[in-house]
Computed example of a mutant assay.
Amino acid sequence: MRLISMRFARLFFLTFFLIGGNFLQAQKVTNRPVCTAISAQKVGVNKIKLSWNLPENFNAASIAIFRSTSQIQQKSFISAEKPVAELPAHTTSYTDNLKHFGDYYYALIARDKNGNLFNMLLPTVNATVKAVSLLPPDDYYEIASNEPDEQYVPGFLRELPLPYLDLISDLDIKATPMTSKAKKAGIELAGNYAVKKPRLLNPYVFEEDMVLSPEGDDFFLFESLKNYFIKKDYKGSVKDLRDFLAITREPYVTTRAVFYLAQSQYYCRNYRKALELFLFVEDELPELSKKWIDSTLDFYQIPKEERPVNSSSRG
């Protein structure tokens, strides 16, 4: 009987110790600046909304939001990464705008008035354990066609870069006129050589622009081509592409845009401007540019008012 009583007493004290320890630990966490009840859900094609609760006497200066493509479990991640957003301490929700499809996890970390992070990760409390998946629609990668009423999904947009005006401003500078001697020599060299009537080349579209890109400069170029170039509205294409090129773009996107602008000038019969533009990208697209330069030269003629008077034609 005495042995049973001793065992019961040990079990009672052990249970009391465990319960008391957990209670003290819970009180310790509750009294610290930790956001609770974190929730993340998809609210748009590229948007995820976070919401959370704040404990009483939440004494943080701000809330730092961390994002990852894998579950955030290590404190070292918080120490090494920069937060995607820093919010006032009273905030209880935030909408994250993403630029790429994929799975996303989040963690909320409080920052004190001295700028230090209270680096505590508690799954389901201030860190998500289930990924929020952003997946493209079934027709997202549909190849662009020439139909003007084609439907497509815009997808993600990045912020526009800072403007950089006159990227190809030298193309608007009035060309130095040819001397009468040079014009005369060119005409005499050509003589009465008979040539076949030239034919316009078919519009050329780069393979990269046949598929809708999810973001960035490729997306904006695709948008311009769809609205004007593909519809053969070349005057509108000239204006829109010039506006597009008035802002700093990625080098290869710039090259393709200038080539489309050259084609648009070509179909508008502005052969001199088209020639200048094709020459502008000749180093990047040597074989393709040569074909279009040759065709442009077939159509380009020196205006009659600029031609010198042939001495043999004088009376």
Rank of each mutant, 00 (worst) to 15 (best):
S51M: 03
Y140E: 05
V253D: 05
E208R: 14
F118W: 09
G44A: 15
R67H: 12
F13D: 06
Q301W: 03
Y106N: 08
N202A: 14
R2H: 06
N59G: 02
Q74H: 07
N270Q: 06
F222V: 08
A107W: 05
L167M: 11
F8T: 13
N22E: 11
A190Q: 11
A144H: 07
L18G: 06
Y141S: 07
D166E: 11
M210R: 15
P203V: 09
S289T: 09
E150S: 06
P33F: 05
Q71G: 04
S289W: 04
I168F: 10
A107K: 09
V43F: 09
S224R: 15
L135H: 03
S76E: 12
E250P: 00
L245F: 01
A9F: 15
P308A: 02
Y105M: 11
H100E: 15
I247T: 05
L117R: 15
E208Y: 02
V129F: 03
N146F: 06
A80W: 08
D240F: 00
L117W: 11
L189I: 00
G191Q: 11
S51F: 04
G115T: 02
G191A: 08
N22D: 10
Y164D: 03
Y300Q: 10
S76A: 11
F229W: 09
K113Q: 11
D103A: 12
A144F: 13
P203G: 03
H100G: 01
A110G: 05
F244K: 01
F219D: 10
D240A: 07
H90E: 12
I72W: 06
L221K: 10
F219T: 10
P136Q: 12
R307H: 02
A127V: 13
L157F: 11
L108F: 09
K42N: 10
E188T: 03
A246V: 00
D170I: 06
F13C: 13
S295R: 13
L277T: 01
R10T: 09
N57R: 15
V84R: 05
L245V: 00
S133V: 05
N270F: 00
Q263I: 02
P161D: 07
F229N: 04
E56M: 12
F23W: 15
V211N: 13
Y300D: 06
S133T: 13
E142S: 07
L261A: 00
N59P: 03
L162H: 11
K197H: 02
D138S: 04
Q151V: 04
P308K: 07
Q41Y: 10
P161E: 04
A262G: 04
G20A: 12
Y234S: 01
E223T: 14
S312G: 03
Q71E: 08
P88L: 02
